[in-house]
């Protein structure tokens, strides 16, 4: 885990507060340590966390340590990236996705933010 991480580390316990009750759009990366593609996308997630500081919340949830939320959202593949706004899923991406594709989705959400 990077020092000074700008992304939020999610747990089953703080998910409601950090994601569903968030004022900002939230990107949640469901990942696990043993998943190669998750490692591949990790630097992108960290970059997005810096790039979107103040505009969108970038969060990561380890599916090994937290099972309730991944099950609730029907996560069947990692990495799965879910985009939340006003407590609802508004977009998603599965697998290793290019940074600009994720940035475009975040831009779309951040621009409509109230």
């Amino acid at each position: 885990m990077a020092d000074n991480a700008k992304y939020v580390t999610l747990t089953d316990a703080n998910f409601q507060d950090e994601v569903l009750n968030s004022d900002q759009p939230v990107l949640v990366d469901f990942w696990a340590a043993w998943c190669g593609p998750c490692r591949a996308i990790a630097p992108t997630i960290e970059e997005l966390a810096s790039d979107y500081e103040g505009k969108a919340k970038i969060a990561k949830m380890d599916v090994d340590n937290n099972q309730q939320i991944p099950m609730q959202f029907g996560i069947r593949s990692i990495p799965t990236l879910l985009f939340f706004k006003d407590g609802r899923i508004v977009d998603q991406a599965i697998g290793v996705v290019q940074k600009r594709e994720l940035a475009a989705k975040l831009d779309a959400l951040a621009s409509q933010a109230a």
């Binding site: 043993w34 998943c35 190669g36 593609p37 998750c38 069947r76 593949s77 998603q92 599965i94 697998g95």
Partner: peptide, 11 residues
């Protein structure tokens, strides 16, 4: 894809 279809068993 990601809803039960996968090309990565180990993931």
């Amino acid at each position: 894809l990601g809803r039960g279809v996968s090309a990565c068993a180990t993931c």
